[in-house]
Design a protein around this nucleic acid. Structure first.
Lengths: 218, 218, 218, 218
DNA sequence: GATGAATGAGATTTCATTCAT
DNA sequence: AATGAATGAAATCTCATTCAT
């Protein structure tokens, strides 16, 4: 099969996996169901993805790609604005991305757990995962959104819109913690009967962005 | 068996589960191993916990309990200090708790995912989970740490150490997002070969606490 | 506990077992259910009967006792009749006994299977069974109904009502095969949707008795 | 898998079950052992037979098939003989079949118990059994041996070798009762230490056949 | 390359029997 | 002697993964 054809099929499978995972979560999703949704059999699926985890890695990769895409677009839209404004826009985009793409944001978080597990259990045979082409791709990509943010922050320092005494990497990570924490709370409260108090998650987002602005602005 | 005895045995099993899960994670932990570690049989274990997931709920509950305990202790230690100081101490305790109790913090996060899944899939048969006594207990407990924090913040407003114009609930949740995000990053970077840039997580914690202080102090 | 009290309790348990077994058969009957029906706990039951099989032995014993009783009564009622008439009456009683006491007749048949199994697997540990007090009792009793029949047949030879050239033991056993076969067919056809052709079992009984009469009468 | 292939595999499993059951009996036979003997896994076995009981149904079916086979053969061998001779030959074959195929004859008897249980407990969930393809097959087959015998008897009436005034169905069933009863006694006495008196089972068989002849012959 | 069947590992259940109190 | 809890052995089920064709 020529590469492009294979690529198409792969995408088809990932689409199916995406649908099924969205409904059930990773643990409860059955390979069988994903295969059925993709209109193929389990074994065919396995000829594309060596394992369930590998398939999830592909989704993670997609998530990172989509996120990166969003970052690039945001940066492009703000290329004539100040670094501060651009940085703020990035975080806002990040928040919105997570809200709109729940599975993707979960996947990004799970990726963190994954690599954490890898390093905690070095004895185990993780060849499967680490040799996955998607794992490699993700690793190449994983820091890109962070770096893009750092870059915009640094531009902000240069153009005088951001305080010059801050550690850009640190503040970028700090922004991430807020987004990540927000997603988690979001996922827990969305339709929950016993919500976390009575706060609108919207205002939480706003507050986080305000925090960021305060920390960065002159 | 009188309740206290049953409680003891249950705790014994949860202890064992804790040990095994700490080593292997939820997926790879075998019920058989947990039972052996607890010095009982699989069947006996099943007479206490209907399923692996149910056992994990118990650990989640413990995690919440432990966290609540830490909050109470911190509050008690700061009862003669200002509300601001107490609030800051709570967040610091929270950070430290997560750092020191990885499994617990994972469990707390997983609890969020769990209830998120529950609400996203109302069709599925989640009776097992929702009828678990531990699920109920967790639900009763889940907002307590939040509420305790809110209370201290309000005390801070009253004693003049915290700005009177803030929304305590909102700022508490904001604090949580930072802690939660921090844990996630923490779990991902601890011994990771390709760390998230080169930032010390310690300084990230410090920065978060600074953010909090700035937002709250007069 | 004095003996008679123990005897009472034992009977109580056997009654319960009888009820439950009647509903479900031996395989599917649960010790728990029998105990509940008897108003005691499993362990108490075990203090009376060392095993499920032992309990069944007790029922078998009862069955044999009841059957023997019937034989005695029939013989007594026919003590002034010819040996032939008495013999025929015995077989008729036997048929009727089986029809009215399905579980008992099953138990008697199962007793045959039981001792057959014992002899086929001499390596196994059958101590439990062979040392049961009921097993001993049954063994003492098992041939009695047969012997009683033989005796009446012999009386028939003496009083000239039965042909003198027949082997009484052999013909007694022959009678048994017919009764046993009859029970089996009976049990299979009672309420079965696809009955064994369209024959009234009653006429089968009659035919069997006719056979017996023809074989025995002068 | 095409049907014939599946049938082959099923037969392979039934063969294995036959071997194991012959050694241990139904109760003590372990699914695992049967699977091993068949050279497959437990799970594979379960994909062919939903339960141990279902597997036993298959053996019952085989027993009936084998018996039917024997009947057909006997009839064929006696197609040039009188109906009486053929009928007698059938019963003799039946006796011999049971003597030579203990497990099969047990299975046939157990089938009677099974349907008896089914009809006595209509409340229980017997879907498993009644929906088994083998259960259906057995039901289709169960009356065939009977009918074949009836046919030969009727042929005997036509060719004048059998009395014209008998009820063929009734006498066929009568023959069955004797065979069935014989099996039961056989199984109980084979190697039994406390035999049913001192009668040779052979002579019992002979007597039964004599009975049959007398009843049928002119 | 695609398929149906099979595997292996582990979760869960059932139940007779035993233990500890 | 009686009880609730525990055991052990086996049945059954679930599902990711692999085999054979």
């Amino acid at each position: 099969m020529d590469l492009s054809k294979r690529q198409l099929k792969e995408n088809n499978i990932i689409d199916a996996a995406f649908k099924v995972l969205s409904l059930t979560g990773f643990q409860k999703a059955k390979i069988e169901d994903i295969a059925k949704t993709a209109g193929i059999t389990k074994v065919t699926l396995y000829s594309y993805f060596d394992s369930k985890e590998n398939l999830y890695l592909a989704i993670m990769y997609r998530a990172l790609q989509a996120l990166t895409e969003v970052f690039y677009t945001t940066i492009d839209q703000n290329k004539n604005e100040s670094g501060l404004k651009s940085t703020k826009a990035i975080f806002e985009s990040f928040f919105n991305f997570c809200e709109r793409n729940f599975l993707y944001s979960e996947a990004i978080l799970d990726y963190f757990s994954l690599i954490s597990n890898l390093s905690r259990n070095p004895k185990e045979d993780n060849t499967q995962i680490t040799q996955s082409i998607y794992f490699t791709r993700i690793q190449d990509l994983q820091n890109l959104p962070l770096k893009l943010t750092v870059k915009e922050m640094e531009r902000g320092i240069k153009d005088g819109s951001i305080r010059p005494d801050i550690d850009c990497v640190l503040h970028t990570l700090q922004g991430w913690t807020m987004v990540i924490g927000y997603i988690k709370l979001l996922s827990a409260t969305s339709t929950n009967e016993a919500p976390l108090l009575n706060v609108s998650l919207k205002s939480l987002k706003t507050l986080s962005l305000t925090f960021a602005e305060k920390a960065l602005a002159l």
